[in-house]
Design a protein around this nucleic acid. Structure first.
Lengths: 207, 207, 207, 207
DNA sequence: ATTTAAACGAGACGGTACGTCTGGTCTTGTA
DNA sequence: TACAAGACCAGACGTACCGTCTCGTTTAAAT
């Protein structure tokens, strides 16, 4: 569905020369479109965002948008997740701190104004378009890998329970954050929320 | 937003008599619409479902739909959640069993074909419409209350940790299930998935 | 290509009852669209006329236009030729006067501001769409018949040459007028033009 | 409007030397474009002809087209009328034969497959663009002059009626042919058509 | 041999109209 | 009053084409 994969794998070493022919795309237009999309998402939300409005605010035209992204969903997911943190920013050696950092990181990503505005609509589009689903998920591959890695290290140190499946852990962290965001439209998730959620994920609900 | 509350609480005793005048609604039409909506959701998904198509399959017209539901979202959420289990179906006294039952119940609700097809679109609409959000959430009030109740009982018995916030627990259970459903389009969530998720929520990730 | 033939043959006696069901079309909208089209043709010409602009001026929407006419060309031909004179307005018995009347009538039709603006574009569309061609020509069937009739009468009286083919006569009258209109953008065709053209058609160029 | 007049009057002696510097144009490209335009006109018509398609078939690019012709209409009129006969091919001294030759010449020009396909669209564009109108008409200046000349000679010999205006005669000949072509899409105009039309223009319709 | 200026292939760009689709409302005639 | 049917408003959709512009490359003539 991607109109042009070049923006994804610009420097994919498929050959010695990609031989770019014809007028090159204006990178300022790419940036202006993404910025306009992010602004409009925060201002009017996903449902009210139109390609024409994005084009107008970016100072370009619909044609230029569709040359780069094949649909509103493709554009939005790139504008909403320009960079997903692929590494956990805490020193290793303390698994409890790792989990808290993961929860906080998930909270930070999901409650940014742009993501809050984009994600519900994106979820709907992803459910209807497997290819889009795959592409969005690819953005989070780094996070998933980092969780998996920290969990393996903690297990080696004897810090983590052996029966904890990394995918289940990701689902629990990400799912709790996602649902909390959806249930509290407009309200932030404070550090106390992070603490409470972390407590359950670390010690469980049982005494 | 509800066009007519009568289909929800037909005999709400607000007064002595609502004085029904004119031709009464044909209840077969209500049923046909809901059935057509559920079928189409499973077949073509939320985004491709149109009110006109629902009307056609139900053998009626758009007018009849809008007389009963004020919007596509209102119709779909009623077709997708005809009945949400409001009580936990396990005998009390075993909090671990309670949690597993909750996870399994969430899994059962979220992975039914109709809910799978409807929920992503509903999430998008709910994010844009607080009133709809409120109405859908009301359907789950019973579940939330049940979780809260069981947790309180378990805490009284000393079975549950005192610092477990019931809202966080609901978010973790529902969120993990929701995200798992979204991440595995078309694939079921088996009993092993329930077991693994339950393990984390009961004992936590730490050794 | 006609979106709905009902506006053409509203009372075609195909059966005892057409049984009109559903909300009927608002005839004021038909009139407003045709009026807006004629106005815009005269103001900005065929090429610059857009369906959206017609809809806006008519106080309605594009949907309503396309429900009635399947394309810009279909709409314009109906707006440009609301009524083509189907009879010659001179007393019979003088074939020279008949021809002059025909030339003057052709001049009147072709040099009206709306027809002047519409015809060039219509000619282009007709060449690309045989069905449209047929429909436009049908509007002139009455004129053609009238010419044929007057010619036959004149021949019976011995006034007209026996070898004059009626189709050739129509082509000469209409063609000369059409070309004169095309060659003089914006300029009128006066009575002297009618006299000169009539002279050739009556007496020929030879002495 | 002409992008570059060089293709029309390459050696216009406006100055001592135009001093052609830089890479000269490839004349094979001029030819290929005109041939591709003529072919596509005959195949898909004026409305469906796009500059991109012409470029592709000619094995070149849009840039090369616009370097030579400033618009689709400019290109088409040059492809459709590569050469208009500027003189009448009959021996002088017989005005009736002159007229028949003019009618036949008009028929030959207007019914060639390329002109048939191009003219309706050109008429539309000419009506909207006076400059284009002027340029196309200039191609027919020779024909007009020839008619005028023959008419003057015939009048001097006493063969032609004195009140015949040459412009009216041109309009009658050209107009009748144009309209006949438009009214018979795809059908040829035979010699009998020429005879019948000539008869009216020579002797008139009156007995 | 080098410079220069324009032609060339390729394709992005702004602009604009197209005809379609959907959501949700309104207006008929009939039951 | 419900109902079937379908017209209505409003507005986004994605496509297509026009004519311009900007690259990097090639080709001749002038230096």
């Amino acid at each position: 569905m991607k109109a042009d994969p070049s923006s994804v794998d610009k420097t994919r070493g498929a050959g010695p020369k990609p031989a770019p022919v014809g007028r090159p795309r204006d990178p300022r237009i790419d940036a202006a479109i993404l910025r306009a999309t992010a602004e409009l998402l925060a201002e009017i939300g996903y449902a009210n965002l139109t390609m024409a409005a994005v084009a107008e605010r970016a100072g370009t035209t619909k044609t230029a948008l569709y040359r780069r992204w094949s649909s509103k969903a493709e554009l939005v997911h790139e504008a909403a997740f320009p960079a997903v943190p692929s590494a956990i920013q805490t020193p290793p050696g303390d698994f409890a701190a790792d989990i808290r950092a993961m929860v906080a990181a998930a909270r930070d990503v999901f409650t940014s104004p742009v993501v809050r505005a984009a994600l519900p609509g994106l979820i709907a589009d992803m459910a209807a378009d497997p290819e889009l689903n795959r592409r969005v998920m690819a953005r989070f591959a780094g996070v998933f890998g980092a969780v998996r890695e920290r969990l393996a290290e903690a297990r080696d140190r004897g810090e983590a329970r052996a029966d904890v499946d990394p995918d289940r852990l990701v689902e629990a962290i990400g799912g709790a954050t996602l649902l909390a965001m959806l249930l509290r439209p407009g309200e932030p998730l404070g550090d106390d929320w992070v603490d409470q959620t972390t407590a359950i994920l670390i010690h469980g609900a049982l005494a």
